[in-house]
Design a protein around this nucleic acid. Structure first.
Lengths: 210, 210
DNA sequence: GCTAGGCAGTAACAATGGTTACATAGTATT
DNA sequence: AATACTATGTAACCATTGTTACTGCCTAGC
């Protein structure tokens, strides 16, 4: 675990901070000393991602949802923290997209480290900044792009995150992430197939040349 | 100036920090000791808003734009800072919506204060958090609402920010902010008028009951 | 093999929003 | 007052997306 942790955060954090993080990790009950999330598990609080990917969604009152962005190795997401802290029901949901290794940072450690370590402060600021930029990218695609472009972007990103050239999803699931209907996605996917960019199969899509 | 500053930030910052901010303010060339922005002026860097309002826009490569949110008294926006710092052309534009009093925080003071003052750190974190939430609200309305609802939200927010019940804008300007066309806005505004919710005039709109 | 349930293909239609084009009405300049 | 410019009203049309409905197909469970 220590190797993995250093590989993900060693170039960012001071030695002393890394040691504290290891301690927090080893407090956890899981033998390896940190948390393993299964696909589909919900994340609450502030995670330090060591491997895998987490999908962050926006949800509105009517149950409509929308994919915001993915978290990857070396990322964190203060939003999942601050959302849970503030009473405001700032509805954000974070779900493990793949099997994921991470360390959950306790709230009081978070405060402590912010005062104590410059590298931690910078990390948190950078994290906020990166999340903001990703939100803006998402917002761009919704505001400025048509659905065909959004779909292509989605497929590319999903393939990148999962390090595969197949998307293991039904059309309905894609429709949820992009907040549209299954029929619309099927229609557009069929077009992409006719253009030779993808290959459609039951429950998965093979990317040829997007 | 000192009174105004304390009114905006006194309950947030430690006394010592307030004094440092006053010093930064009094370094500025303007007699009153801090910056006055005229309507339409561009903001670069990190502002501490004392009065007035700043409009923050997203811009894409084709010159399309979209209103993100407003900054008000007591707000700051680290995005306008970090955007200017990082070379990445994360296109955000901040413009004074009304005449505005503010203090521009120099970058090295920013760093210094973050290390030195807990209240400053909390302020910055809160700021990031608030900006994220406002971005999410904006994103919600784009993703989940139809144009008529977005327009109503826009009119309400604009009235609130300007503390008036008239919107001093042409249809074209509203269309830019919502990233749609003038004809669409005229159409919807006319509907709202027929419903008795607003009154249309040349160059301004009077809000009756939204 | 048979059946039920989930998944995908497709057609027909509706709704929303974007585009073009032109008319009319204020406003400013001379 | 004549002119030019800007803002608004409106109609007609198109493109994109959303909706409904029905089809066939695959797969799991019997």
């Amino acid at each position: 675990m220590i190797q993995e942790l250093k590989a993900s955060y060693g170039h960012i954090f001071e030695e002393a901070l890394i040691n504290e993080i290891i301690q927090v990790g080893t407090y956890k009950e899981i033998p390896e000393g940190y948390k393993l999330m299964d696909i589909g598990e919900y994340i609450k609080g502030m995670p330090l991602l060591i491997s895998g990917a987490i999908k962050v969604l926006r949800e509105d009152n009517d149950g409509d949802e929308l994919l915001l962005y993915y978290l990857e190795q070396g990322d964190t997401c203060s939003m999942t923290l601050t959302c849970c802290m503030s009473d405001a029901k700032s509805e954000i949901r974070a779900i493990a997209e793949t099997d994921t290794k991470l360390i959950m940072v306790p709230v009081q450690k978070m405060e402590e480290w912010t005062a104590k370590y410059k590298s931690w402060r910078n990390f948190i600021f950078n994290s906020y900044h990166n999340r903001l930029n990703e939100l803006l990218t998402t917002l761009d695609s919704i505001a400025f792009d048509k659905m065909d472009m959004r779909l292509i972007g989605y497929l590319k990103e999903k393939a990148r995150i999962n390090k595969e050239d197949t998307i293991q999803n039904t059309h309905q699931e894609i429709a949820y992430d992009l907040h549209t209907s299954r029929v619309v996605i099927s229609r557009l996917l069929k077009k992409l197939e006719q253009m030779g960019k993808i290959e459609l199969h039951r429950n998965y899509i093979k990317i040829l040349d997007l």
